[in-house]
Every structure is written in C-alpha cells, then in structure tokens.
C-alpha cells in the first residue's frame, strides 16, 4: 500500500453520495437555505446527524491510515491512534442507529470529505493538529450543542448517546494535544506548520460566524469552553479561537 494513499481512494458503498463541501453549501444557498443544517427542526437535526456520521466514518478511516502510514512513529502514538480507530468505529455505529432513531437512513444526504482530506496530510503532527485538535475540537462544540438540543426537545436517547461520544472526543483532542507537542518537540518549524494547518481548519469551520462564543440559545454553534479545557486547549488558544470567530467572514 502507498504511504499515504491518494485521497480519492476513499472507498464507499454505492448508497453514499459524495459531493464537494463548497458545492453543497452553494446549492443550499441557491435554494435560500443556510449553508449548513442549523438544527432548527427535526429534518435539520437529522441532516446534521448524517453529517456527523460520515465525519465519524472518515475519522475512523483517517486514524487507521495513521496507524499504517507511520511505522517509525513512537509506539505509544500508534497505540493512541489504534484506540481512536476503535472509538470511531463505535461512533459510526452509534450515529447509524441515531440516524435511524430520527427516521433517516445512510446516504440520505450528501457526504463531503473535508475530514478525510485533512487526514491525508503527509506529516503525522499536521494530522493530529488538524484532525484531532481542529476537527475533533469542532466536534466537541457541535456535540455539546446537540446534547443541549436533545435535552430541549426531550430526546434522552440522543442526549445520552452523544454525551458518551463527546467524552471520547475530548480524549481524542487530548491525544492530539499530547502528540502535537511530542512529535514536534525538537522541531519548531514542523510545529509551526502543523499549528498553521490547524488554524486554517479552525478558521474554515467558524462556518461564516455560525460557531461563536455564547449561550446555546443565542448562537447556532457555541464554543464548548469547558470541554475544550478538559481536552487540553489552553485559555489562550480558546481566546484566540473566539477572537477568530468574530472576524470570520459570512460564508
């Protein structure tokens, strides 16, 4: 097998419908919809859950590739990534079942492959910065919001399952924080590039002002400050993220 493989080798059953993320947002906007599902009704929650499901799938695939692509990396790093593969495989199953719980089915909405593209970064440090800290940090924000909504609409199944997934994601972000530091400890240039990669992802996923600081009732996706602290983000990093969301252009 190649190390890494080309990103277009990602294999899917025919029932999945793959599209470019930018195209999906454009088509939604053309129809007068928000660029991303806003969780304002059942259909929108279902669409969001589907988006999370394919993200979990790509997270599993990405962590699996990392196990294969870096045989020279520290053994404990490989162990963390192998553990993540297992966690993500449970998350996939959880979200398949939640999707069905909400009356949906696999393939009901298009799949975009942003997470997978980040998981194809050539450097292991960039992968953990971009995927574990950038995208799984975003997952902490999104899951926190979803738990809040589940509580509000009285759906204990959704609430409890997502809460367990959130606990795992915090662990994955923590792994990212640890390995970003350890893999780059003697190489400031490598660290700079990895952090830049993460920041570019953070910027993109401020989602045109959709992710912001604030109460769940006030903003579409609120930054999960407490979960992020548990996951190893510093106060300074959280402050920087909040500041970045304020200057993020509308999509």
């Amino acid at each position: 097998m190649d190390r890494p493989i080309a990103y277009d080798k990602l294999a899917r059953e025919d029932r999945f419908i793959r599209m470019r993320a930018r195209r999906v947002s454009e088509i939604r906007l053309e129809q007068g919809l928000s660029p991303f599902p806003d969780l304002s009704n059942q259909e929108s929650i279902k669409e969001r859950v589907h988006g999370i499901l394919v993200g979990e799938l790509q997270a599993m695939e990405g962590a699996g590739r990392t196990v294969y692509d870096f045989p020279e990396a520290p053994w404990e790093f490989t162990m963390d990534m192998a553990r993540q593969v297992w966690d993500e495989s449970r998350h996939v199953e959880i979200y398949v079942r939640l999707l069905e719980h909400l009356g949906g089915y696999v393939g009901e909405f298009p799949e975009t492959t942003i997470l997978w593209r980040c998981a194809c970064a050539e450097d292991a440090a960039a992968r953990v910065a971009g995927v574990n800290r950038g995208l799984e940090g975003l997952a902490c924000d999104v899951f926190n919001q979803l738990i809040h909504i589940a509580r509000k609409i009285g759906d204990p199944i959704l609430e409890q399952a997502v809460d367990f997934v959130l606990a795992d994601e915090i662990t994955h972000v923590r792994m990212g924080s640890r390995w970003l530091n350890e893999l780059t400890k003697d190489d400031p240039e490598r660290r700079r590039k990895a952090v830049e990669f993460q920041e570019a992802i953070d910027e993109r996923f401020n989602l045109g002002g959709i992710r912001r600081e604030g109460d769940h009732e006030e903003v579409p996706i609120s930054i999960a400050t407490e979960a992020r602290k548990l996951a190893g983000f510093t106060d300074e990093e959280i402050a920087r993220l909040i500041k970045a969301t304020q200057r993020s252009p509308v999509y």
Partner: peptide
Amino acid sequence: MMRVMGGWIALTPELSAKLLLGRHVWDCA
C-alpha cells in the same frame, strides 16, 4: 497485521467489513 488492517479500512467499501476491521485494529494493537 494491525497496521495493514488499519490501512485497509479506508480502501474497503463495505460498512460491515470497515467496522469489523475498525474494532479489531485496537485488539491487535
């Protein structure tokens, strides 16, 4: 075996096989 199974997950289309490999990568690790 564990590294190969990890690498194959993305190359395997069938969800049942993907998840099977995903579960076993961690055990083999």
